[in-house]
Structure formats: C-alpha cells, structure tokens
Design a protein around this nucleic acid. Structure first.
Lengths: 219, 219
DNA sequence: TCAGCGGTTGACCGACCAGTCAATCGGGAA
DNA sequence: TTCCCGATTGACTGGTCGGTCAACCGCTGA
C-alpha cells in the first residue's frame, strides 16, 4: 500500500518533470534552456530532477524513446496488415501527422532536438531512427514484390524520400512556413502519400481512368 | 601594393578561419566545439577570430550565407531557363547533390547546424531558407500552369516534399544510413526527381491507380 | 632609422550552468 | 510517540567557454 502510494506519487512527479521538459524544450530548445527552467515549469525543486533522472540528457532521451517506440510499433503493425501498400503508407503518414496534431510540442521536440539533430542527440538514437526507416522500407519492399510499386528505386531510397517529405511538412508547420489548420493536416496526409505514390507529373494528357484496386492486382 | 598585400593576407586568415570553422563544426557540432578549437584548427591565435568575426555565431552565419546564396542564385537561374520542369528539378537536385559531393563537410554544417536546426540557427535564417522553398515552388507553379504537373497539390506543398526528400538523402549520407559512393550520388540525382515526378507506384501493366484527385479538382 | 598602424597574440575575466549534497519533510510502522 | 526512509529542497561548487584587451610584431613610407 505504502509502496503503491509512494510509487504513485513518484510516477506523478516524474511525469510532471517529463511533461515540463517537453514544454520547455519546445519553447526554448534543449541547449538554450537550463535544468532549473524545467524544474520551475514542473513546479518542483531543482534537485528533484536529479532524483528521477541521471542527467538533463536523460530527460530528452526518455521523452524521445517513449514516443518513438510507439511509432515503431505502429509501423510494424501497419506493415503486417493485409492491405495495399498505399493504405499502409497512408496509415503511417496519418499516424505521424496525428501525433503532431495531438501534441505538437512533443513532436517539435522529437523532430527538432533528436531526429533532425543527428549530430548531437540523433547520434545516440541513430539506431532507433534507422529502425523507422527500415520499417517503411519494408513496406515498400513488399509492395515491389507484389508489383504495386516499381522497382526502379531501392526500398531504402523510397523510405528516405517518403519520411523526409513528411518530416519536412511537420517542420513547415512547426516554423510557420506552411499553414497548419485542421484541414491542412487532413489534406497533407492524403497528399503526401499521393505525391510519393503517383508523382507530381501529369501522366497522360487525358489520363488514367481511375479504376481499380478492386481488381486483382496480380494474376 | 601594401594595401593589396595586406588585404590579401587578411582575406587569407579570414578564409582560414572560415574553413577551419566548417571542419570543426562538421566534426564536433557547433555547440560542442569551442572557439579555441576553431582557432587551433586554423592555426591562428584565439583573439584573431574576434578580429574578423563579431562572435562565434557570425562564423556559422557567414559559412551558411555564403553557400546558401549561391544555391538561391542557381534555383533562380534554373527556373528562368526555358526547359521542361523535369529538367529544372534535375538541375536543382543535381546542384545540391554535387554540393555535397564537392564539399561534404560544408553541406553537413549547413544542413545539420542551420537548415535542420530551425530552433537555433535556422531561426535566424528562416527567411533565406524560405526563399529556397519559394524558388522550388515557383518551378512547380509554372509546371502546373503549362500542364506538365498536376494541380492536385499546391506548389508549396510540392516544394516541401521535394526539398525534404533531398535533404533526407543528404542526411542519410552524412550519417552513414545510406551508401555514399560516386554511383550513389549520380543515381540519387535521377531517382529523387523520378520519384517525386512519377511516383513509386507501378502505373502501366496492371496498375492500381486508385483514387482520384485526377477527377475534378476545381472547376 | 623610426614612427605609425594594421594584423596578431593569448592570458584573463565574468557569466553561466550541470550536477552534488547535506539538510528537511512527511507518513507509515512499531 | 519515536524511528526510519524515501521524497524533496535549494544553496553551492567546479568547470567550461565566449568574449575582452593590452601588448606585441613586422611592414611600409617618410
């Protein structure tokens, strides 16, 4: 009981610090903020931060891993579904976009301070980051095998292009380069997949009857 | 004469510091290195750095702007050519890839420390960075006007996706996520444009051209 | 020969900040 | 009531590093 109660309280403060970290890192950037900023934001004493975390870095590490592991799970789960590649990519793009919509500060921190900071924090988590690319590449690999996708590029290449496009969109939202309203998010989900799958070019003057996908795609 | 000689020498030292900065920033990251590291690398005294630059930041600013302005010039020049959009995009992608091939350390610094560090340095240069997106968007806009590109996405969106894909590739090379040999560079130039223009999906044989957006987009 | 003057030097200063630690609190068990 | 122990506090320390500055060097022109 006491253990549970104490544990419960402990988890709360820890959570408080983690959440405060996200807010502060998002606002000021990891290097520009002090540990005391995080403590203040969380409403706890400076020292308590070091009771729950070994270092300032560990706060960011924890924030990142917590969320990134969820994403890796989603990618793996999506890939295992028996649906067209297009739908898988839509699910992945949708998850990332929704993550941003649901908690923009968290995604800002993850992208700006980790994923795009490959020289500092990204370095530590390169392995994890790579796993995401690999998961996406696997989706493409399967799609190439079934003939849904061309084989003209390697799955790795396609994964980088796809993920890069999405991350650039989020970056655009984060820094007000692109409009970031509800409609924009929904549109972006569709369009990023559409662009990567179908390309920007007009295909035929008249163009493809939409058709299919209801039809057998091979054999 | 003396003026010229002195000026020549001055330029040399300044250049020396700038180049040393690139090397040190690329190796250690901007925040992780000290001004003395740059001075040592350049083989000059600590104080001289402050003779030529106001601050540590100004070194990075200078490095970035010097190169970015070249890129903005290239984009504008390419856009003005009377050639298919496809060729324009190839020229832009080619320029960026070649920049990396020619001076990977410089591009690493620009991307890792500025372009992808929108929270710190990127902030200062957001305007400049935006100009590049706008330049690419302009290429797409014209292509849509001539019917080369579909109008299903906004030029801004297309520009972000295109640039994002390229930057992700460079990041892949920088951090050894993608193989980075001569052939890879050449292939990447072609494939990134091909992917963005034509898409990943197989179109011809059987094809699963699902959906839409080829349908009434407006009017 | 010498004064003038950039270019050049590097020791030093002051600010900042991650991380430590001894003290205190509070609640449950004996 | 008292003891114990983990949670909590925040002043303090040690070290780092950006930026300053007074002195120095060596060329040039008089």
């Amino acid at each position: 009981m006491s253990a549970a109660a104490r544990h419960g309280a402990a988890v709360d403060k820890r959570r408080l610090i983690l959440d405060a970290g996200v807010r502060v890192f998002a606002r000021q950037g990891f290097y520009r903020c002090r540990v005391s900023d995080v403590a203040d934001e969380a409403g706890v004493a400076y020292g308590l931060v070091y009771h729950y975390f070994q270092s300032k870095d560990e706060i960011l590490d924890t924030v990142f891993l917590e969320r990134w592991d969820v994403m890796l799970g989603v990618i793996a789960e999506v890939d295992a579904r028996d649906v067209p590649a297009r739908e898988k990519l839509e699910a992945v793009a949708g998850f990332i976009v929704d993550s941003y919509r649901y908690d923009p500060e968290l995604m800002k921190v993850i992208i700006v301070e980790v994923t795009r900071a490959a020289n500092s924090f990204g370095r530590t988590h390169l392995g994890k980051i790579r796993e995401a690319y690999a998961g996406i590449a696997e989706i493409v690999r399967k799609a190439q095998a079934t003939g849904e996708h061309k084989r003209s590029v390697t799955p790795q290449f396609a994964a980088m292009a796809f993920y890069g496009a999405i991350e650039q969109l989020l970056t655009g939202w984060i820094f007000d380069i692109l409009p970031a309203g509800e409609e924009d998010f929904e549109r972006a989900k569709r369009q990023v997949v559409q662009t990567v799958c179908e390309g920007l070019e007009e295909t035929a003057p008249r163009a493809s009857a939409p058709s299919s996908d209801l039809l057998p795609r091979d054999a």
